[in-house]
Design a protein around this nucleic acid. Structure first.
Length: 695
DNA sequence: CGCCGTGTCCTTTTT
DNA sequence: GGACACGGCG
């Protein structure tokens, strides 16, 4: 069982008697440690169902589940392997009633939240609403409610947001809904304030393993502490150098506090990297070097020096894409690695922001290279899928007003803004959900007479569907029901009506069918649900529909596809590829624009505010994560000019390229020299255009 | 009153 | 290229 583990890994696996922190450098085999430790815990007599492994993404959970199954076999099925949020859902479905929440509560996605906030704050401006959303989310992740937020608000603006937060929370509870942050915050409330709930969950948790511990936020840490109790039956695995979710409330304090909160904490460092060549690892170590060290560690590799890291400069995004693809083709042609690791799936193109994928997608399509975009728009963000999900949400939870509004207008059924506005006013007045309002006796006096019949019909139809869905069991029946329903509402026609491009419409319809097939498969117990619990029995469609809110892709096992991966740096964490191209490594992108007072970004000598410094450090960790995804070859590319809104502007290479401290002979020109030259050029251009603008 | 076409804005990272 | 507000048409 423990074959092939090094000493440090073995120590981490075998230490089961108390709290344990494993500081796992990039590529040091942390997933291996977690899966082996699950096996070890079972060996020493812990029941599999009392073991929980918590990850941050569904993808990581799926991977972990698979690796555990390979290693341990059938017993792995009973181990809970899920995300923090999925565990939260489980706790809330069981115990949320204590807080006045129906077990059929809905989960609002980010877009729902934006529109609710627009409504609460009386604005139509999405940017403002998203600003509020961001702030409120951060507060919730710090464990603050609306009153506490108001009390600590530093200025008027913050006080306004706190007030909107209060309205927003009221609205959510009226909808019997929660947002993503509640999936952590409410379980915390349950565990902290209700001893009997806490004791029950503590009894269920014999040992908790937390992956990517450095990405936990304050509330998640509190949840963890309550789950594991004073004895601290947990293993936290993480790497302070890979903490890249500070913007989501993650805090390295959780790492700092661990030894204080658990004095008998065993700390183990994994420092041997099994992933990358020395050339790549050296660049990574150099980049991260300026950051302060929480737990100093020195990563080393025994895989040999390998290919030098390349720096590629391109004139613009299109050129950058062409050069990246040329590189892929040349490596596939065998010029760099003559033996293996030359299939499409061995390549990844990584970038800072989702929208940067586009030129690369176009270039790959032109070159006839198959690819997938991960971490971009998820399957469940597609309009057609959101439409279907809105109907499901409404069957499950009639109080879900956002779902109601979406379902009643997709497809269009002659009920528009005006009528819905009247219905909304009426519902608010009598404190009813929109759905309840449909059946109120006084409805006809509140809305236009023409609309009343349509509204009633819709209400009856939803009731009917809810009833049918509840009694639809198993795969065949579920699929038949879904197709019948889509026919009834004329959804396929709706897609073709709403789209002048027939190809797009048919692609959308294909998505719909794929989705139905997938749902039906779950009813047949083919696929495990997001909470990682046993799913081998037939389920009703209603039950299945309840589990989809947390899932972002249909197939979580897509890694066998032989295609090039395009991914954001954030979504790439935990993954690896033989050949990686890191693109858009420009100042203002990576590091991302740090703030107005740091516009031209090179002023490392001037005073830097604490906030900006911290952001820079997180950006540096992001670069570090990107570099350490590469096993055998790494290229880093930047462009001299980039699109900014409508026009092209001059751009600078990232300071991180200089910080990699690549050998002089690796690249033709010293990036520091180049940086200086470009900065001069940039300043001159700025002066020129200023002069142009004047006369 | 509902629907659809046009013009305008923006685009960090995710459960 | 995409989301969204606005104005004209059926």
């Amino acid at each position: 069982m423990s074959a092939g583990l090094n000493l440090a890994q073995l120590e981490a696996v075998n230490y089961v008697q108390g709290p344990c922190l494993v500081l796992a450098g990039a590529g040091s085999g942390k997933t291996r440690v977690i899966t082996h430790k699950i096996g070890r815990l079972i060996d020493v007599g812990l029941e599999p169902k009392r073991i929980a492994a918590i990850t941050f993404t569904n993808k990581a959970a799926a991977e972990m589940r698979e690796r555990a199954k390979d290693l341990i076999g059938k017993a792995a099925k009973d181990v809970t392997v899920c995300t923090f949020h999925a565990l939260g859902v489980r706790i809330m479905r069981e115990d949320g009633h204590v807080l006045g929440l129906k077990p059929q509560f809905s989960i609002m996605d980010a877009d729902d939240v934006t529109s609710i906030l627009k409504d609460c704050g009386g604005t139509t401006d999405a940017a403002t609403a998203r600003q509020w959303q961001w702030t409120i989310s951060l507060w919730k992740n710090m464990g603050l409610n609306a009153e506490q937020a108001a009390a600590q608000a530093p200025d008027d603006n913050a006080r306004v947001i706190a007030r909107i937060m209060g309205l927003y929370e009221e609205r959510l509870s009226a909808y019997q809904s929660v947002d993503f942050d509640d999936l952590i915050g409410m379980p915390l409330k349950l565990l902290a304030d209700y001893p009997e709930v806490r004791e029950r969950w503590q009894a269920k948790m014999g040992h908790v393993l937390v992956d990517e511990y450095q990405d936990t936020n304050a509330t998640q840490y509190e949840v963890l502490k309550h789950l594991v109790g004073e004895r601290g039956r947990f293993t936290a695995v993480g790497d302070d150098d890979q903490s890249i979710y500070g913007w989501r409330g993650a805090t390295l304090d959780n790492l700092k506090r661990l030894p204080q909160d658990f004095p008998n904490l065993k700390v183990i460092k994994l420092e041997q990297n099994y992933r990358s060549t020395s050339a790549i690892l050296r660049a990574a170590n150099n980049v991260i070097q300026p950051n302060p060290k929480l737990f100093p560690k020195t990563l080393f590799s025994e895989l040999g020096e390998g290919e030098p890291v390349r720096v590629v400069d391109a004139v613009n995004e299109e050129h950058e894409a062409d050069r990246a693809i040329a590189r892929i083709q040349s490596i596939r042609g065998g010029q760099v690695n003559p033996s293996k690791h030359r299939e499409f799936k061995d390549f990844a193109i990584l970038y800072r922001a989702n929208h940067m994928a586009r030129p690369f997608e176009q270039a790959l399509r032109r070159a006839n290279i198959p690819y997938k975009v991960s971490g971009g728009q998820s399957f469940f963000d597609k309009t057609e899928i959101k439409d279907l999900c809105a109907w499901f949400r409404l069957w499950i939870n009639n109080d879900d007003d956002p779902a109601f509004l979406r379902a009643i207008t997709s497809p269009k059924r002659g009920i528009g803004h005006q009528t819905l506005g009247q219905l909304g006013t009426f519902a608010t007045q009598y404190k009813l959900s929109l759905f309840e309002a449909l059946f109120a006796g006084s409805l006809p006096s509140a809305v236009n007479t023409r609309a009343v019949d349509g509204l009633h019909e819709f209400g009856r139809y939803i009731n009917d569907l809810e009833h049918r869905a509840r009694h639809t069991l198993g795969k065949e029946a579920a699929l038949a029901f879904l197709l019948e329903w889509l026919k009834e509402i004329g959804y396929e026609q709706h897609l073709y009506d709403g789209e002048d491009n027939e190809k797009v419409a048919s692609a959308r319809w294909t998505n719909v069918l794929e989705f139905c097939d997938w749902m039906a498969g779950r009813c047949g117990g083919e696929i495990e649900d997001a909470t990682g619990t046993d799913a081998s029995e037939s389920k009703s469609l209603l039950e299945v529909a309840q589990t989809i809110s947390l899932i972002s892709t249909l197939s979580e096992r897509e890694k066998d596809q032989n295609v090039v991966t395009l991914s954001t740096l954030h979504a790439s964490k935990g993954l690896e590829w033989p050949h990686v191209v890191l693109v858009g490594v420009n100042e203002g992108l990576l590091p991302f624009k740090l703030g107005d007072d740091d516009e031209h970004s090179g002023r490392s000598d001037g005073p830097m505010s604490e906030g900006i410094l911290q952001r820079l450090q997180e950006e540096r960790r992001l670069m570090y994560v990107g570099i350490t995804r590469a096993q055998r070859s790494l290229a880093v590319s930047w462009t001299k000019r980039r699109k900014k809104g409508r026009d092209m502007v001059a751009a600078l290479p990232s300071r991180f390229i200089a910080e990699m401290k690549l050998d002089e002979n690796t690249i033709k020109e010293d990036p520091r020299e180049k940086l200086r030259a470009l900065r001069a050029e940039f300043a001159k251009r700025a002066a020129d255009s200023a002069a142009e603008a004047k006369p």
